[in-house]
């Protein structure tokens, strides 16, 4: 009896210890996910009492809507414009603060500051910087003899402005993650490389990047997931009017999440259609993560 109890204890207890996470995940993660799938198969308006079953009708309508593809294009464009410079900058910054510096902790803490700031504050400030008539950036452009830009009106210009906000918030955070990984790289590698006459740039490319490959994969995947769900930046950038729903009159910066918001919380509160959008987004994110993984895995390993 005692041995049986002992055995049960050693074999079951670990599962019991980790069970709170899985229970909470089931309640707050898995159940909503499944319920959303169920809702997405219905003509489900929050204002109506009847929810008719429509099968895959919402999905068919979604994939046939040119505005959905427009939102997908915008999301991917903002993703590329924000993630790529963000990761390159983060890598360089991490490399810089990984060297012997005066007041090193101060620099490292400073990296995190933009991320601690609330996203609303960041967007409000950046929206003023990118303002058409009274914005600082246009004022600078004009004083250099270049023309003003109506940042919100253009497709490319609005994407650049939004990408700048995302880059500002997340570069330092990613740099810190890179830094943590860099500190685990053996110092001897750098010492012998220095003896062999390798420059700082060569050391970054040939030693650091291959050594922190798993961290790069992680950061790329996490940034992609965030980038595909970007919402607050375009929503607040457009101001409090209807542009905050459709991302400008020509939908020039409507992202996928804004598209979902447009249908779920406006236009008759079509939760069925919005749920279908959410599931398509989920599929896209899984797909993007897989592709990212395959690409970044090809970064040459040091071993």
């Amino acid at each position: 009896m005692r041995t049986w109890l002992y055995k049960a204890d050693t074999q079951l207890s670990p599962y019991l210890y980790i069970s709170p996470f899985f229970l909470l995940f089931a309640v707050f993660g898995l159940f909503p996910l499944g319920y959303t799938a169920w809702v997405s198969l219905h003509d489900w308006s929050l204002l109506a009492d009847e929810h008719a079953f429509v099968g895959l009708g919402n999905y068919a309508e979604l994939l046939a809507d040119p505005y959905f593809w427009n939102a997908l294009r915008n999301t991917l464009s903002i993703l590329a414009l924000s993630t790529i410079p963000q990761l390159i900058l983060a890598l360089i910054l991490a490399h810089l603060v990984n060297r012997p510096l005066r007041a090193r902790t101060l620099w490292r803490l400073g990296l995190l500051l933009p991320n601690v700031t609330s996203v609303v504050a960041v967007v409000v400030i950046f929206s003023q910087l990118f303002g058409r008539d009274f914005g600082l950036i246009n004022w600078l452009l004009e004083s250099f003899g270049l023309g003003r830009i109506d940042w919100q009106a253009g497709v490319a210009s609005s994407h650049v402005a939004i990408a700048a906000m995302i880059t500002w918030r997340w570069t330092g955070y990613n740099a810190l993650i890179f830094l943590a990984a860099m500190q685990a790289v053996p110092k001897e590698l750098y010492e012998s490389a220095t003896l062999d006459g390798a420059t700082a740039g060569q050391q970054l490319r040939k030693i650091t990047i291959p050594s922190i490959r798993p961290t790069i994969i992680f950061v790329v995947i996490v940034s992609t997931i965030y980038g595909l769900q970007v919402f607050a930046e375009p929503q607040l950038f457009a101001g409090g009017g209807p542009n905050g729903i459709i991302g400008g009159p020509d939908r020039q910066f409507q992202t996928l999440t804004l598209y979902m918001y447009e249908h779920g919380f406006n236009r008759g509160f079509e939760f069925g259609y919005a749920s279908a959008t959410a599931w398509v987004m989920f599929g896209l994110i899984v797909l993007a993560a897989a592709v990212n993984y395959l690409i970044t895995r090809r970064i040459r390993s040091s071993r």
Binding site: S127, Q128, G131, R132, D133, F134, A238, G239, G241
Partner: peptide, 18 residues
């Protein structure tokens, strides 16, 4: 003036006389 309502540019324009 092509101002989008409720943006910072719009609010500022009332005072600046755009």
């Amino acid at each position: 003036a092509k101002l989008a309502a409720w943006t910072p540019e719009w609010s500022a324009a009332f005072g600046k006389g755009t």
